[in-house]
Simulated scan of single mutants.
Amino acid sequence: MKLEYSSSLNGASYLLFELKQVVKLKKLGLSNEEIRKKVVEDNVFQFANPSRIKRTLPSIMRRLDRIDDVLASFMLEESIGTSKIINLYAIMKTDQLFFEFMDEIIKEKIQNNNYLLEKKDINVFFTAKSEQSKKVASWSDINIEKLKRAYMQVLYESGMLRDRHSKELNRLIIDEQIKNHLIHIGDSKFIKAMGN
């Protein structure tokens, strides 16, 4: 099933802590509806502004639905690096445009040992997508600028960018257990998109 292009990363970019909280609740046996209710009522995400919960929760729940029991266990029991990779995978699984960015720009660069992500790379990507998609073409310049920043934020927080200001990419070290599991469930394209 091909996802629609979306700019939802603007309101819900990385959110690793929040995803881990809902994964814990799922592992406790709560239904999605019970998780939603608990997150809102108990302010599980510890947001100062309740409207932020309503903005981010749909994206987090979509990511949760893409994480099977095996990945959920890895996320809760393994290192923070493992959690970051699973979150990056869940973002790609729920955001077609971001997946294409990873697959067409990041994978290509890492495969060619070109670790410099320049502004023009991102601009060329969004220009091409707005030529291919009426939906992307309809987005305002402000929306697209915010989305570019959100993409950079995801790359930085997942460990793919060396630091917030450099444009130098890192090759992620992905645990063999995760690699093998994603291959087993037919999701090897996401490992490749991360440059592995």
Rank of each mutant, 00 (worst) to 15 (best):
K2E: 15
L3D: 11
S6F: 06
S6C: 07
S6G: 07
S7R: 06
S7Y: 06
S8R: 15
S8K: 15
S8V: 12
G11K: 01
A12Y: 00
S13I: 09
E18M: 06
K20I: 12
Q21L: 11
Q21D: 12
V23T: 10
K24H: 14
K24D: 14
L25Y: 11
G29F: 07
L30K: 09
L30C: 13
S31K: 13
N32F: 15
N32H: 15
R36Y: 12
V40R: 11
V44F: 07
F47R: 02
N49V: 14
N49M: 10
S51Y: 10
S51Q: 15
I53M: 14
R55W: 05
L57T: 14
P58V: 09
P58L: 14
P58R: 14
S59R: 06
S59K: 05
M61D: 07
M61T: 09
R62G: 10
R66I: 02
I67F: 02
D68Q: 06
A72R: 00
F74H: 06
L76C: 10
I80S: 04
S83W: 00
N87L: 08
A90E: 02
L97M: 00
F101Q: 02
F101V: 01
M102V: 05
D103Y: 03
E104N: 05
I105T: 00
I110Y: 03
I110E: 00
N113W: 10
N114D: 13
N114W: 06
Y115S: 07
L117V: 01
K120H: 08
K120I: 13
K120A: 13
D121P: 04
I122E: 04
I122R: 02
I122N: 04
N123I: 07
N123P: 07
N123G: 06
V124I: 14
F126V: 03
F126C: 13
T127H: 11
A128Q: 15
A128G: 08
A128R: 14
S130G: 00
S133L: 01
K135A: 05
A137S: 14
I142Q: 12
K148E: 02
A150C: 06
Y151W: 05
M152I: 06
V154N: 05
Y156T: 08
E157P: 04
E157Q: 13
S158T: 09
S158C: 11
M160P: 01
M160W: 04
L161H: 00
R162Q: 11
R164P: 03
H165P: 07
H165I: 06
E168F: 11
L169D: 09
L169N: 09
I173P: 01
I174C: 03
N180E: 15
I183N: 05
I183R: 12
I185L: 09
I185E: 10
S188L: 13
F190H: 04
A193P: 14
G195E: 00
G195P: 01
G195S: 11
